[in-house]
Design a protein around this nucleic acid. Sequence first.
DNA 1: AAAATCAGCGAACAGCTGTTTACTGAGTGG
DNA 2: CCACTCAGTAAACAGCTGTTCGCTGATTTT
Lengths: 209, 209
Amino acid sequence: MSHTLGIRQAQKQKTRQALLDAALGLLEHQSLSSLGLREVTRAVGVAPAAFYRHFKDTADLGVALVEEALGSLHETIRAAIVTTGGSEERIDRAVSLIAAHVRAHPAHVRFIARERHGGVAPVREAIGVQLRRFAEEVAAALGADPESVGWSAEDLLMLAGVYVDHMVMTASAILEAGASGASGAEEAVVATARRQLRLVTLGRRHWLD
Amino acid sequence: MSHTLGIRQAQKQKTRQALLDAALGLLEHQSLSSLGLREVTRAVGVAPAAFYRHFKDTADLGVALVEEALGSLHETIRAAIVTTGGSEERIDRAVSLIAAHVRAHPAHVRFIARERHGGVAPVREAIGVQLRRFAEEVAAALGADPESVGWSAEDLLMLAGVYVDHMVMTASAILEAGASGASGAEEAVVATARRQLRLVTLGRRHWLD
DNA sequence: AAAATCAGCGAACAGCTGTTTACTGAGTGG
DNA sequence: CCACTCAGTAAACAGCTGTTCGCTGATTTT
């Protein structure tokens, strides 16, 4: 796909990725707002000054983490959108995809949920931009559905926003349930998420009555 | 109501409140996870060691802030619940009450939205407990409504959860809109929130079909 | 009036923080 | 092959952090 990088650039990107991974790990028990530059470099085993070769700030690193985390989520969303079948099967498939995503990328999900309203403005805004982008994408897909004839663009975006917000909340709830250690907690969260989507779907069906 | 406190205890509570207020102010631009004890005492104009006379931690202070913030919200919720009239008027009134609450206690709203998924476990859990309590209260009120005959307790709690989550998200969105400086942004958020509640209400009406 | 309490003080502690500096030495391109 | 680039180093900087200590003096209790 892309041109093979030189040994120099390859090593640089490797260190950069190590910094991102270490930061993501450290953020399990704190917020980005309190993440120290030295803390990250120490975890990687690199000199503090090396940090500046990759990021100017921990906030800057946070923005890079947003790209990474929401990049992976983007693919999950696209997969959920193209699902076909009756509304019940679509709901089941969407929730299953979210649950699988949480299992595959728990740290990413935690990061997004935590920093969406977090104390670091640039990161908060980066997440906001991307989630709005997702909502537009979902709205476009909803608009292509025959069930959406008569819907205004504004209402489609409103509905898409409900879906995107619900996805983020559900992902975070699944993560918490998994961390709580209580067996069956995740299943309960998933079941509730499905019922909530059913509720929204019912509202959608009668929107134009 | 309560017995009049001595001069000693009155002064102590005054200092305690000053610490809480200062902390809430400092949390506008950061997360609790990065809030320093010295930072708070400096803002109040008190010696660092004095902090320990009131809280053992900044996490401990955070839990106290949760009580304060969700105590005020509780009253707003109760006011929204007892509203009478058609569903359209009830929606308008609920959203107006939220908007008024955000205007009256912006820092409290920011704190709850930020720390709900924040990096300090005890605070996160305190918020979770209280929001679940709110949901139970809303569920009980919904159960008393004639429109809820045939609903299971589980489904009522699910619906109440949707309302509570939506309230928190809306409050946070109104806050952001106000901070963005864009005139009309808040009105747009409020209008979207109303449409979302209308969608949920439609779903509710057809739940048993 | 004497004794006890206790909120807040000021100083000191070791340990951490972000940032700058001049440097090394492996990888690169002419 | 040689000059150059540049990712990562080691050391030093001032300034901050949480926590402990003994102390003071106004309030409370006896």
